[in-house]
Each structure stands twice: as structure tokens, then as C-alpha cells.
Design a protein around this nucleic acid. Structure first.
Length: 598
RNA sequence: GCGGGUGUAGCUCAGUCGGUUAGAGCGUCGGCCUGUCACGCCGAAGGUCGCGGGUUCGAGCCCCGUCACUCGCGCCA
């Protein structure tokens, strides 16, 4: 007989009744009735009930063990009588009567419960992550993650992509996020950088003629985290295609993404492959106030500036007259809503740092609120007719400079949609946001800068760079968005050296700068580079969406906390003096703050 | 770096208008219990009300500061 187990804790059924078996696992729960004792024995696969009574030598041993101790049970499979069958348990028709027990590892009193999934403080969960990972939800989420990644690999291979591993110790990339640096021992004073993404390597693979690349790639960025952005490191489904147009990237990836989503979506509907809406960036900003719109929210923002060029409502007239805009967010069927609902929205907007959120109420055709009063009912009716709104629909207004108004309108659209329960939770709504601007005006640096990826191809190529106002140039650049999350980003790359140099010149870099900073790629493009493009999808975010988790820590094995510390392993930690000496490094403590502390 | 929220037992939380000895459930520990499956019953331990200062006859509650956690902004080509 196997020393530890003949079956897993999910395997036994009525078919095994009468067999002598051996099971190993953790004591999930213990119900001690004095003369008879039940143990829910748990392993990765499931739970089986163990029973021991005064006839069993196992009884006194089990009585003395704490939950989460690891034991091996030898005993007989018994059918449960009808009244004691547990329909909630896969193995609920049987139980194992313990004849013997071996304690493999006794557990101390637990710092956090495993069987009980009540919320627990983040720092304790992270410090005792091995216990947290035993808990059902997290354990299941991690297995979903594993399965999602396996599924992606399969689909990518089936689509003709080859998986390559690219270096982890590489060169710092001067653009973009803050790098993690790794000191070089051999080269005093020099550092490797961990890749923020395998961007340059995958482009080099295309130049090297490999045609279709993908990788489940670890990426490292030293930036502050968010609920949907892990500190330090994360994974991307990274891919690149030679001789591909952006339409071809979309057409290739829609079945992969849709397929993986559908495979793990359960009852939820997924936007069919081939039907992902393609929304130009400018349109997204206008209609949704965001470049990552949640299409489950039916509300559409409209520009209504032209209604207020002359208005009794002086504030909007002034804003429009000064080159600003007025955007309208519908609040359908809000005739029953109290004034407080509308005022609370305005308070919220002010709290978020905006000037305020105006509103019009409407009840049975009757307009209400200061804006309607000053603007006049006839002109309000005109505006409502244009927007196709009904006699019980309210309306919010975001006014100001175009970018600010769009941002506020976008935030208000989300909030109104949530408050009114308009979000369709039963689906994954996918779309492409396309035609991103190539450049943007950097207010801090007072110059034109790349708005996203400097390696992407400007629409119109070098002619556009030479002849067009840079701020009007679009890029062959796109994001994939699901339910308000950016889950992938990509572009057709700029593979022409002279276009690359020109593109950087507009941001103030010289040809020498480009050659120095992107030497490898610049050189590669001199010797025959195929037109190419691709994208990178956030594996963590996709798994989070599929698990219905609100936080990336719920789908990550060993995440760091918000201050980028690994509380389990104790990273980061101070190096040994010897290590610093080998690296010719010395730590210079930052000046201590004069007051405060503890 | 900045802003919001939170901070009371190991955990989740309650604590009225500022008023005597700060409570409950879960967990832990001890006892009882032969059919439970979130077992049940009895009992016990467990508190610097995050920390510091202030107002007050009196502060968990009010004020100021600070720290931690968290969400967001900045940042994230």
C-alpha cells in the first residue's frame, strides 16, 4: 500500500464501500462529540469525512490535534445511512472509518483561519500566504489562473505563434516607467535593468525572421500600485507578428481572447470574435469620457455646447464662449429620485476635485433645477429632443475645458450607471480603442512628447511627420478594453530608421540620441526589417476579471503589499556588507526628516 | 508626492447626547457530549479604544498632530 494515500480526498464514492484505503491531508474541520469524532480531511482535490469512535485507536490522537495538522488515515470506506448523507460534498455518500492515524505534521494555533473564509487583514494574509493559499477561494483563483495561462498557450500555438523566452537581465530603457536596476559586479558602476516589457526583444525577433512570437512574459516596473496594478512585477501575454496590418492583429487575437474568456466565463456572455467594436480614441473620449470605456454601461455622453452659446444660464454660456465645452450625461428614469440624489452627485464631483456637476431633473415632462430654470423649458425641450430623452429622464452636465469636461463626464457616467443599477453584470464586453494620438503636449516639459508608445508607426508615415501638426497625427496604436479595464495594448511598429529618427526629433531628440538609446533596434532596422506589430495583454487583469476578483492580490500567488514588500520572504532586505563590497556600492541614507517619526 | 476612507479583544464589528466597571459574534483555552458536517452545551482567558498632545469635573466619542492600512490622483513609453 502506498505510504501516504491510495486515493485523494475527492475520489471515494459508494463504489468503494468496504475497501480499506489510506488518505492524507489537512484537518479542515473537527467535530468532536466525545465518544465519536468527525474530521473533514482536505487535500488539493476535495474533502472526505473521517469518523472515529471509541473502538478506534485513532480517536485519542485526533482529539489532541489542531486543525490544519497533516495526517494520514488508514481505514474502511463505509456508506453513510440516508439521513447522514451530505449532498453538499462530492464524497458525501461515504465516510472513512479510521482504524489508524499517522501524524505527518502537527499544526500550531493558527494566525488566521483556513476553513472560515471571513475577511482577514492583508498584512497577516501576506505574511502567512501559505495558509491563505489553502483557503478555498484563493486556491481556486490560483488554479483558474494556471488554467487560463495554459489555455492561452494552447490557443497561441494553434494560431501559429512560437513561444520564446527573452532576457530578464537587460538594458534600462530610457523612456517609460521607472526601472528596477540590478548592479553589475563585473562592471563597476554599471547596472542591468529588469525589462518593463520584452518590447525591443520581440521586435528584434521579427527582424530575425521568426514571424510570429509570443510569451507569457514577466514584466517589471517600479511604479506605485493600484487595485488593478500590482507593485513590481506582473505578467503579459506578449505577442508580435511580421507582415501584419493592425486589422490582422485584431482578427488574429479576437478568437484567442474571446476563446479564453468564453472558456472561463461561466454563464457570462462574451462579445463574439469578429464583433469587437472598434472605437476611435476621439470618439471614446467624447462618448464615454475615457479610453477604457465599460460598454456594459448603456449611458452615452453627448456634447451639448452648441445649446449654450446663448443661454439664460450664464455659467455655461461663459464656459462655451471661452472655448470650453458642455457635456451631458443622461440619468434615465430618475423622476422618483430625490433632490438628494442629484445634490449628492454634485458633492461627489466637488470632492473629486471638479468645479461641480450640474443637473436637470424631469418628472412627467416638468423640468426642475436651476439650470433648467435659467435656460428655459422650451430650450430644454429642444435639447432633450436632440438627445432622445424622455419625460422622466434627468440629465447631468460636465462643463469646462474639453479634457476636464470629458474626464468628469466619464467619471459621472460610471457613477450614474452604478447608482441606477444600469451595469449589465452578466457579460464581458470587449472592444478595441483605435487611432490613438501619436503625440501629446507635455505641460511639465513644455514640449511635444509621445502619448504612448514611441516605437509605433505614425499614420501617414514620414510624410505626416514632415507636414502635419504633430498633435493631429494618429498612430497605428490600439488598446483592448473589457468592462472598463484596459486588458491589452499594442501597435504596428515603426520599422523605418528615418521615420524613427524623425519621430523622435519632434520630441526633441537627435539622431545621435536615438542611436545611443535604442542602438540595438536602430541598427537592426538598417539590415532589412519586416513591417510588424503586435500587442501585450495583461494576464493578471484578465484572470481577475474571469475570477470576479476586485483585487489583483486575490489572483496572485505571492503578491507584494502596496509598499512593494514581500512580507513572507522579507523582501526587500539589506545586503551583506560583503555583497556591497563586491559590487563597489555604498548605501547613502537619505536625510532624516526633522520632525515626526514612530 | 497629494487627496478621500478606515483604525475599539486574535478576527468581524457594536458602543446612544461626552458620564459609573468598554460589549457581541467568531476564534483560542478548559470541561461535558456516540451521528455531526459552520455540531451543540457550560465556563474562562483575552483591551495602551493605532500613537502623541489638547479641550473638559469627566474623552473610545470633540479638536490638533502623527502613524498604519486601503482606495484614488500624480506616475504607469
Amino acid at each position: 500500500m502506498h505510504p501516504y494515500r491510495t486515493h485523494t480526498c475527492a475520489q471515494l464514492s459508494s463504489a468503494n464501500v468496504g475497501e480499506t484505503v489510506r488518505l492524507s491531508g489537512w484537518i479542515h474541520r473537527k467535530r468532536d462529540h466525545g465518544g465519536v469524532l468527525f474530521v473533514d480531511l482536505r487535500d488539493h482535490y476535495g474533502i472526505t469525512q473521517i469518523v472515529a469512535d471509541s473502538d478506534s485507536p485513532a480517536l485519542p490522537v485526533l482529539e489532541g490535534l489542531r486543525v490544519e495538522s497533516v495526517i494520514t488515515i488508514e481505514g474502511e470506506v463505509k456508506a453513510r445511512v440516508a439521513e447522514t448523507v451530505n449532498a453538499n460534498l462530492a464524497t458525501g455518500a461515504i465516510e472513512v472509518f479510521a482504524r489508524g492515524v499517522t501524524v505527518q505534521s502537527a499544526a500550531e494555533e493558527l494566525p488566521m483561519p483556513v476553513a472560515d473564509e471571513q475577511p482577514y487583514p492583508e498584512d497577516i494574509r501576506l505574511k502567512y500566504r501559505f495558509l491563505d493559499l489553502r483557503r478555498e477561494t484563493l486556491h481556486k483563483n490560483i488554479m483558474t489562473r494556471v488554467a487560463v495561462i495554459a489555455d492561452m498557450r494552447q490557443r497561441m500555438a494553434a494560431a501559429g505563434f512560437n513561444e520564446f523566452s527573452t532576457p530578464i537581465l537587460t538594458a534600462s530603457s530610457p523612456e517609460g516607467a521607472r526601472d528596477f536596476l540590478v548592479p553589475s559586479r563585473i562592471h563597476t558602476g554599471k547596472f542591468y535593468a529588469l525589462p518593463q516589457a520584452p518590447q525591443q526583444y520581440k521586435q528584434l525577433l521579427m527582424v530575425a525572421g521568426f514571424d510570429r512570437y509570443f510569451q507569457i512574459a514577466p514584466c517589471f516596473r517600479d511604479e506605485d500600485p493600484r487595485a488593478d496594478r500590482l507593485p513590481g512585477e506582473f505578467y503579459q501575454l506578449d505577442l508580435e507578428m511580421s507582415f501584419a496590418t493592425q486589422e490582422e492583429v485584431w482578427e488574429t487575437m479576437e478568437p484567442v481572447i474571446q476563446g479564453t474568456f468564453a472558456a472561463f466565463a461561466g454563464d457570462k456572455k462574451v462579445t463574439p470574435a469578429g464583433e469587437f467594436p472598434r472605437i476611435p480614441y476621439d470618439e471614446a473620449i467624447l462618448k464615454y469620457g475615457s479610453d477604457k470605456p465599460d460598454l456594459r454601461n448603456p449611458l452615452i455622453i453627448s456634447d451639448v455646447s452648441h445649446h449654450f452659446t446663448q443661454s439664460g444660464f450664464g455659467l455655461f454660456e461663459k464656459i462655451v464662449g471661452g472655448g470650453g465645452v458642455v457635456r451631458a450625461i443622461p440619468a434615465p428614469a430618475t423622476h422618483e429620485k430625490s433632490r438628494k440624489f442629484f445634490d449628492d452627485m454634485n458633492d461627489w464631483a466637488r470632492k473629486e476635485g471638479y468645479a461641480g456637476l450640474g443637473y436637470v431633473t424631469r418628472k412627467g415632462g416638468e423640468f426642475g433645477g436651476p439650470i433648467a430654470k435659467n435656460h428655459g423649458p422650451e430650450r430644454m425641450a429642444e435639447l432633450y429632443a436632440e438627445l432622445g430623452l424622455g419625460e422622466n429622464d434627468g440629465l447631468f452636465f460636465a462643463a469646462g475645458k474639453a479634457a476636464d469636461a470629458a474626464k468628469l463626464a466619464g467619471a459621472a457616467r460610471i457613477r450614474v450607471g452604478e447608482e441606477l443599477g444600469l451595469i449589465d453584470e452578466s457579460r464581458f464586453a470587449l472592444c478595441w480603442i483605435v487611432d490613438f494620438p501619436f503625440y501629446e503636449w507635455s505641460e511639465e516639459e513644455k514640449k511635444v512628447d509621445f502619448s504612448h508608445n514611441p516605437f509605433s508607426m505614425p499614420q501617414g508615415g514620414i510624410d505626416a511627420l514632415n507636414g502635419q501638426d504633430p498633435l493631429t497625427i494618429k498612430a497605428y496604436q490600439y488598446d483592448l478594453v473589457c468592462n472598463g479595464y484596459e486588458i491589452a495594448s499594442g501597435s504596428i511598429r515603426n520599422h523605418k530608421p528615418e521615420t524613427m529618427v524623425k519621430a523622435f526629433e519632434i520630441t526633441g531628440l537627435t539622431q545621435a540620441d536615438v542611436e545611443e538609446r535604442f542602438g540595438g533596434m536602430y541598427r537592426a532596422f538598417q539590415y532589412g526589417a519586416p513591417p510588424h506589430g503586435g500587442m501585450a495583454a495583461g494576464v493578471d487583469r484578465i484572470v481577475m476579471l474571469l475570477c470576479g476578483a476586485k483585487n489583483l492580490r486575490e489572483i496572485t500567488l505571492f503578491p507584494m503589499n502596496q509598499r512593494a514588500e514581500d512580507l513572507l520572504m522579507g523582501a526587500p532586505s539589506a545586503p551583506e556588507p560583503r555583497q556591497l563590497r563586491e559590487l563597489s556600492l555604498r548605501v547613502v541614507e537619505p536625510p532624516v526628516k526633522p520632525v515626526g517619526g514612530a
